[in-house]
Design a protein around this nucleic acid. Structure first.
Lengths: 108, 108
DNA sequence: TTTTGACTTGTCAGTTGATGACAAAATTAG
DNA sequence: CTAATTTTGTCATCAACTGACAAGTCAAAA
C-alpha cells in the first residue's frame, strides 16, 4: 500500500533500474519535478497516465484506478469525512451513467 | 437524486422561497453566479459549505458528504473507470488514517 | 402591452494555483 | 575525492477559477 501515487511510480522506476532523468525524459518531465512527484510534493498529472502505462507496459484502465483511487482517498482523508461518502458516490455514479444511457437512446 | 450539487442547492432555496439574490447575499455570491452553480455551469466552492449549512440549518458533516460524493462521482463518471476504484479508495483511506494514528502516537 | 421581478447567459479582468525550468544543495555510489 | 543521482528552493509563466457587470429571456401583474 502506498501513501501517494508518487511512491507507486518510484517502485516502478527503481524496479526497472531507471534514473529520475531517464524516466523523466520518457514522461516528458524534469528530473527535479519527477523527484517531487515521487516524494509526494507535487501531484502526478493525469494526462501523463498513458505515457506511464506504455513505459511500463501497464494496463491503462488498471493504472487509472490506481491513480484515481489515490486522488479520491486523499480528498476523503483531508476532509476527515465518513466513509459513507463512498456509498453515496457509488449511487451517484450509477445515476449519472443511467441518465447518460437514457439520453443517448433518445437520440436514435 | 441530483446530477450535481447545484440542483441540491436549488431545492433547498426554492423550498424556503428564497430568490437567487437573497440566497446569493447569504452565501456572499452574485445572483448570476449562483444561478450558474444551480444549473451546473459552475462549481460550488467547498469553502462556502459552512455558510450553506448555517443558512439552512444543516449538519455540516452530512452536507460535506453530499458535496464530496458529488465531486467523486463526477470524477469517476468522467474517467469512465470501473467502480472498483471505490473499494481501492476505501482501503487507501483506511491506510492513511491508520498511518496518521501511528505517527501521532509516536509524538507522545 | 408595458412594467417589474426573477432568472439566465455571455463576457472579461483579476486572482490563484499548478507547471516547467533552472540552479544549487545534499546524498549516494564508484 | 569525483561524478552521478536525487532533493530542494525559487520563480516566471500559464491555465483555470472567480467575481462582477451588462444584456438577455421569461412570466406574471398592472
Amino acid at each position: 500500500m502506498k501513501k501517494h501515487f508518487g511512491e507507486y511510480i518510484r517502485q516502478l522506476r527503481t524496479d526497472k533500474g531507471f534514473t529520475l532523468t531517464q524516466l523523466g525524459a520518457k514522461l516528458e518531465l524534469d528530473s527535479a519535478n519527477l523527484s517531487k512527484i515521487e516524494n509526494g510534493k507535487r501531484d502526478f498529472d493525469e494526462k501523463r497516465l498513458n505515457l506511464l502505462a506504455s513505459v511500463f507496459n501497464l494496463n491503462l484502465d488498471e493504472l487509472r484506478i490506481e491513480f484515481l483511487s489515490q486522488v479520491i482517498a486523499k480528498k476523503i482523508y483531508e476532509s476527515s469525512c465518513s466513509l459513507d461518502v463512498l456509498q453515496v458516490a457509488e449511487k451517484k455514479v450509477n445515476y449519472l451513467r443511467q441518465a447518460n444511457l437514457k439520453q443517448k437512446s433518445l437520440k436514435f
